[in-house]
Write a protein that binds this DNA or RNA. Sequence first.
RNA 1: GGGCAGAUACCCAAGUGGCCAAAGGGGGCUGACUGUAAAUCAGCUGGCUGACGCCUUCGGAGGUUCGAAUCCUUCUCUGCCCA
Length: 425
Amino acid sequence: MMNVFDDFARRGLVHSFTEGLPEVLANQKVTAYIGFDPTSDSLQVGNLLALMGLARLQRFGHTPIALVGGGTGLIGDPSGKTQERQLQSKELIAANVEAIKAQLTRFLDFEVRSNPARLINNADWLTTIPLMDFLRDVGKHFTVNYMIAKDSVQTRLERQEGISYTEFSYMLLQAYDFLQLFDRYGCILQAGGSDQWGNITAGVELIRRVRGMRAYGLVYPLVTGADGVKLGKTEQGTIWLDPKRTSPYRFYQFWLNQADADVICYLGYFTWLSYEEIAELEQAVRERPEQREAQRRLAREVTRLVHGEQALADAERASQALFGGSLEGLSVAEIEDVFAEAPSSEVPRIAFEGPGKPLLDLLVEAGLVKSKGEGRRLVAAGGVYVNNVRVEDASQAISTAQLIGGRFLVLRTGKKQYHLVRTLV
RNA sequence: GGGCAGAUACCCAAGUGGCCAAAGGGGGCUGACUGUAAAUCAGCUGGCUGACGCCUUCGGAGGUUCGAAUCCUUCUCUGCCCA
């Protein structure tokens, strides 16, 4: 029977680990944790690897702890950051912690008897520990020399802006978290992204010094696409797990558009597909890349996991309508449905009567272009479509006759940017 | 506290009296080709206008000048050096 470490390794999830970890994971059931930053009210695609990591640990019989950084979030982790972070208010952090909790439940089983997942907030201990105690119990065990040697600190020291004492302390707080979880729950493994290596080993070190016990660390690789961009960061912004921030349709499209070079890797990272299935898809990518079977499967699996079966079905149907055929033949109800995900705006029907409403005004109001000048240029370049028909004349007005079912207008710029205009009586 | 250098559009960066809405690069957008890809090629990339043209913009404020991103004064900020 394969153990979770081998599974991680096979999926390319192991970047580095502390000595002895493979043996421990092979021979015993452990409690492990990963920290999540509450800097926003939603997790994002960048957190997915961590979520799946915990979920896999749980499936292999280990006990996962999701630690939400309600305390450390007040400080800000310098790892992977080149600039000092903005501090966020305590109220905001607390609200974010609650929102993130809700998202975690989609991935982890909190009910199972044998090894239920736990959700813990480090504000529980970080906001109450007296400074003197912290300095004596934690600070004493670290030399500044040790802390300065860490990568995350080094990169900041090399820069002009430097690093504040506050962020410099972050490592100790995270080490203290690990110690707390070790004491309270017998947690002996911390996982995280490769940028967390310094913080994680600091925790391992602290436990060894004050408890004389062995703890372990495991970091997964930083996921960047073939284009070198951090996964989940697109030109249009971050891809969130919250459907209110990133619609399931956009979410689905995000995965569908992954590069051939990345998709197989991602199937291993983000889905529960077996190695055999992944191998088959790999072959499919090689032999008939234009079919994009692997991307389709990836999009399906991840969208279902994050948003559920119904949202997946909607996203697929919308994708098919938008990229498959024309809008012709779609009923008003279907249009309403397909574009439920697309940005939309409302315009009084009156505006379209008589001479009609200038197209350029519509484009600007819909936010598809920033100015009429930009709209005019876009039309000249052939990048504007009304009801999926390319616009030739920028100065035209849209009249009631062009409204689909007398109610809708579908604006599009480029290949993918849709916007639905609803008319109001 | 003293000295020096600098602040230009989304980013980097040229421009040091009119030819500057401001070179070049990156990024972005659109098109062609494609697989809703990559690569490549082409166009666009301050606002208003059908167009001539007009308006706003080169850290802030004021000034010199027929005319200022460019010169002067002052303020703010950033970096470097000295104390």
